[in-house]
Simulated assay, not measured.
Amino acid sequence: MPDLNPRRRFDSGWKYGLVGGLISIPLTVALSTWTGSNLDQPATGILFGAMLAGYLAANASRRAANAGVLAGLVGGVPAGVWAIGWLLGFPDGPIVVWSNPLPEVAFLLLAVVALIAFSLGVGAVGGLLGGWLSKTIHPRPERGVGS
């Protein structure tokens, strides 16, 4: 019978993934403001947030990657919302003419899916890098058969 205890289901990978994702949001905004760009570098903040999540959740490489993917998802949501707003024309006016709505809506959905997939990929790489960094800095003794 599966364990339905909420504490067991909400393990450290989820917690650290949310922490890394929430940290990546203001980091992305700060980096974009500092460089004077309009969110040209969302991957940098997501990568650092996912590295932090992977570093904190480095019990096993799988948990570090899972925490990084969650951090990438959480950190990529504001970039996705911004992209949708930009494609719909907020605040400067519509970029998409909407003369043929079906392909334009398909393009909008494809752009959002691509951005989310990119965020997930950057998050996974960041989580693995953070997990590797954690294991390099704080090596844990391997458990043998006789231990």
Rank of each mutant, 00 (worst) to 15 (best):
G75P: 03
L31Y: 08
A60D: 14
L128G: 12
W132C: 03
L27D: 00
R7T: 15
S147P: 09
L39H: 10
A60C: 10
G75E: 01
A50C: 08
P2G: 14
P78N: 02
S147Y: 14
L109F: 02
A114Y: 08
R143K: 11
P103Y: 00
L102V: 10
L52P: 04
L87C: 00
D11V: 07
P91I: 11
L87S: 01
L52E: 03
T44I: 15
P6A: 10
L39N: 13
G72Y: 00
I23P: 00
G85Q: 09
A79F: 14
G144A: 07
A83V: 14
F90V: 12
A79L: 02
A60H: 14
T28N: 06
V113Q: 11
S119Y: 14
D3C: 15
N38C: 10
F48E: 02
S147T: 14
G127H: 07
M51R: 06
V105W: 12
V113F: 13
A124N: 06
I95G: 02
L27T: 06
R140D: 12
P42R: 10
A30P: 04
G76L: 01
G121Q: 03
L31N: 03
W86P: 07
V74L: 03
G21D: 06
A43R: 08
F90N: 01
L73R: 01
T35M: 13
G13D: 09
H138D: 15
P141G: 04
I23V: 13
R140E: 11
M1W: 15
D92T: 12
G85F: 05
G17H: 00
W132V: 07
L88Y: 03
W14Q: 02
G68T: 03
R143Q: 02
G131E: 09
P94H: 01
L70P: 04
I84H: 04
L129G: 05
A58W: 10
G127E: 06
L102N: 10
S134D: 12
G20Y: 03
A67T: 03
A64D: 04
K15M: 12
V112H: 05
P2R: 15
R62Y: 15
W86N: 08
V125D: 02
S99I: 01
M51S: 03
L120D: 09
V81A: 12
L129I: 14
G75I: 05
A71P: 06
